[in-house]
Simulated assay, not measured.
Amino acid sequence: MKLNRHVRDIVRTYLTIAMTDIELDDPRARSDRREVSGPFDIIGDVHGCAGELETLLTRLGYDVRWSGTPGTASVEVVPPAGRRAIFVGDLVDRGPRSPDVLRIVMSMVESGAAFAVPGNHDVKFLRWLDGKDVKPTHGLDRTIAQFEGETKAFRNRVREFFTTLPIYVWLEGGRLAVAHAGIKEEMLGRVSGEVRRFCLYGETSGETDEFGLPIRYHWAAEYRGRTAIVYGHTPVPAAGWVHNTICIDTGCCFGGNLSALRWPEREIVAIAAERVYMVPVRPFGHPPLRPGAMV
């Protein structure tokens, strides 16, 4: 079977992830954080939309403070008392300011004001930073262009940041988990190639659809677990609960919203995109059910 470039790139990434079945020793890479409790503000796929991220953080009560010149900019984000943010991944690509999104998120994670998990776009960008052969598609070309003016030190800092992220976080005594594309309850507490692939890509068929994109299945429709799962990856028109899961990717980079779930309040806070940065190839919405799914 002949694969298109996009699918070949995903297959290469799958194989890379499959070779890594253990977590790093760095404590920041720990996925099992059941000892940590909220309240949290869980933020959907940012995709380089730094302006919208600043607006959303401000609305949630965070104080975003920039300093320095454009070439040496730094940022400090002060959270509301007692709250922390969690980012569901896909920080880069498509939007106009991926480096600034990373400055904000890295600062928050380093100060303890946030957790973050990687998305598939972040992993692909990390492979580019490592000098691997990746195709600059689906917005990666924009991130590469935006990094042309960044220093080697900043690139190295970004590389270390992505390398040390946990593939998911399991919190609140087991009541809450956050992963980019989702996670099944039986995967919680484990880290393996299979778990990593699911967290990054969700449930896929290995084939492509009429848009030339990987076919995804609506794994959440079959979920019956007690742990609430918050995820992104597949843009939906509005965030809503499906059983005990919620997708908070509402397509900001495509002209939709940037959304956050306030936990434990279960309240959605959303702000509209400033403009359309990229036209979506596939319509917004949950993917179809897996053939033979029991729902």
Rank of each mutant, 00 (worst) to 15 (best):
117 V>K: 14
117 V>Y: 09
117 V>A: 12
117 V>T: 09
117 V>I: 10
118 P>E: 08
118 P>F: 01
118 P>G: 07
118 P>S: 06
119 G>C: 05
120 N>I: 01
120 N>Y: 01
120 N>A: 02
121 H>E: 06
121 H>P: 01
121 H>I: 01
122 D>A: 07
123 V>W: 00
123 V>Y: 02
123 V>I: 11
124 K>D: 04
124 K>S: 05
125 F>Q: 08
125 F>G: 05
125 F>H: 09
125 F>N: 07
125 F>A: 07
125 F>C: 02
125 F>R: 11
126 L>V: 02
126 L>I: 00
127 R>A: 10
127 R>S: 07
128 W>P: 07
128 W>A: 07
129 L>C: 07
129 L>I: 05
130 D>L: 12
130 D>K: 15
130 D>M: 10
130 D>T: 00
131 G>L: 04
131 G>W: 05
131 G>N: 09
132 K>N: 08
133 D>Q: 14
133 D>K: 15
133 D>R: 15
134 V>I: 14
134 V>F: 03
134 V>S: 12
134 V>C: 06
135 K>H: 08
135 K>Y: 07
135 K>R: 07
136 P>W: 10
136 P>Y: 09
137 T>C: 04
137 T>R: 13
137 T>L: 14
138 H>R: 14
138 H>V: 01
138 H>A: 10
138 H>F: 03
139 G>C: 11
140 L>I: 05
140 L>K: 12
140 L>T: 07
140 L>S: 08
141 D>V: 01
142 R>S: 10
142 R>G: 14
142 R>H: 13
143 T>E: 06
143 T>R: 11
144 I>Y: 02
144 I>E: 04
145 A>K: 15
145 A>E: 15
145 A>N: 11
145 A>V: 09
145 A>D: 12
146 Q>G: 08
146 Q>S: 15
146 Q>I: 00
147 F>E: 06
147 F>G: 03
147 F>K: 09
147 F>P: 03
148 E>H: 13
148 E>G: 04
148 E>V: 02
149 G>S: 13
150 E>H: 08
150 E>S: 12
150 E>Q: 13
150 E>T: 13
150 E>Y: 05
150 E>K: 14
151 T>P: 03
151 T>V: 04
151 T>Q: 10
151 T>K: 12
151 T>E: 10
152 K>A: 14
153 A>K: 13
153 A>R: 14
153 A>W: 01
154 F>W: 13
155 R>V: 03
155 R>L: 15
156 N>L: 08
156 N>M: 06
156 N>E: 15
156 N>Q: 14
157 R>W: 01
158 V>A: 09
158 V>Y: 01
158 V>N: 09
158 V>H: 09
159 R>G: 03
159 R>I: 00
160 E>Y: 01
161 F>A: 11
